[in-house]
Amino acid sequence: MQKSLVINPDKCTGCLQCELACSYENEGVFNPSKSRIKVFTFHQEGRFVPYTCTQCSEAWCQQACPVNAITLNLQTGAKEVNESSCVGCKVCTIACPFGTVNYNHSSGKVIKCDLCGGNPKCVEACPTQAITYVDADQTGLEKMRQWATETDNNTATA
């Protein structure tokens, strides 16, 4: 079964545990500035929103890459950057409509979420289950369940 990250901003507290886990897994240090997932704070609205790559099926980054450094992991569905091929041209960072591919100046390559090979550390670290990793074909399941709980059996019409 292929899985997807599902993010529920309502549950996020802005603690950055996801960024810490991500950077530690990928860089070996606790370093939010090198995290593949980012939490945005909208101070005036009192909202926190984690954001990362959605692993597009037809990935702009993959199609834009002139050296085919971005490839599909068939098991996880992740679009992964092959470090040895990446030349750091940054075209993928322009092609991505969501900004989730970014250049890392210390390595000279780009970085993006690769779902940690199927065991995303951000999910493990999140204390409020704002980030979950679920069946890719049922990412709406939890939201449907929420609405279902509010449905009145007597008047429900479908």
Binding site: T13, C15, L16, G46, R47, F48
Partner: peptide, 8 residues
């Protein structure tokens, strides 16, 4: 509005 966390 909501609760909020400090770093980590």
């Amino acid at each position: 509005t909501t609760n909020a966390a400090c770093f980590g």
